[in-house]
């Protein structure tokens, strides 16, 4: 029998803790990644020549395996939460940076010109005009980044965290399939729930654009 339901019943509390821990490990990298990407995107829009090199560098960083990334950070940050956060944040950039730049670039010129003509300052134009119009594309990027990070958080089990990844690892160490299946299934469920929630947000902020 692959699944021991009785074990699941007895351990609902600790399974809930794993889910919470998983979310605690997921949220900061996505938020930091968004802030960093937004800064880089503004820079890339100001200095166009920077854009391609920046995107290419994030691509190279993404090619570094996550486990290797955590290991490389050990000399600097140890087996700390900061280690996990830094590595995971870096992985969001490859999705978020291009999406923010594309989103802002996609704002029609007529609209930005109209804002200029109405006397909007650059900051006000960005916050009140360009950002709202770019949100569908930006949130599309956030969806991919969030799902990716929820999966990668499981690898932090090897440096002592992991959320549901810790369950997968413990289940493996004890050759106990139930715990692995619980970890895998709930990770997938978290990904899907996060994706659907962000899709809902996307539709709510841009009701005029249902197709994205």
């Amino acid at each position: 029998m692959l699944i021991n339901w009785e074990w699941i019943g007895r351990n609902l509390g600790s399974i809930g803790d794993s889910v919470t821990e998983h979310l605690v490990l997921t949220a900061p990298p996505v938020v930091f990644g968004f802030i960093v990407s937004f800064g880089l995107a503004l820079l890339a829009r100001r200095y166009r020549g920077l854009y391609q090199p920046l995107v290419r560098s994030t691509g190279v960083l993404f090619a570094v395996p996550s486990l290797a990334f955590f290991a490389l950070l050990i000399p600097f940050l140890g087996l700390s939460r900061a280690n996990a956060y830094v590595a995971l944040t870096v992985y969001t950039l490859i999705v978020l940076l291009p999406n923010i730049v594309e989103g802002l670039d996609g704002v029609p010129a007529d609209v930005t010109e109209a804002a200029d003509a109405m006397g909007f300052s650059a900051v006000k134009r960005l916050l009140k005009v360009e950002l709202p119009l770019a949100l569908p594309v930006i949130i599309a990027g956030l969806r991919i980044a969030t799902v990716t990070i929820i999966g990668l958080v499981t690898i932090t089990a090897f440096i002592g965290f992991g959320g549901l990844g810790a369950d997968i690892l413990t289940g493996y160490n004890r050759a106990f399939p139930t715990q692995i299946v619980v970890g895998v299934t709930l990770t997938a469920v978290l990904s899907i729930v996060a994706d659907v929630a962000l899709l809902g947000l996307q539709r709510a902020v841009a009701p005029w654009r249902q197709e994205v």
């Binding site: 999966g151 690898i155 089990a157 997968i168 289940g171 493996y172 895998v184 990770t187």
Partner: peptide, 18 residues
């Protein structure tokens, strides 16, 4: 999409245990 949602670690772990 499902491939992206299911954690790699889990696939390897289940395959190893089974």
């Amino acid at each position: 999409n499902l491939g992206r949602a299911i954690p790699d670690l889990g696939i390897v772990a289940i395959a190893a245990v089974l």
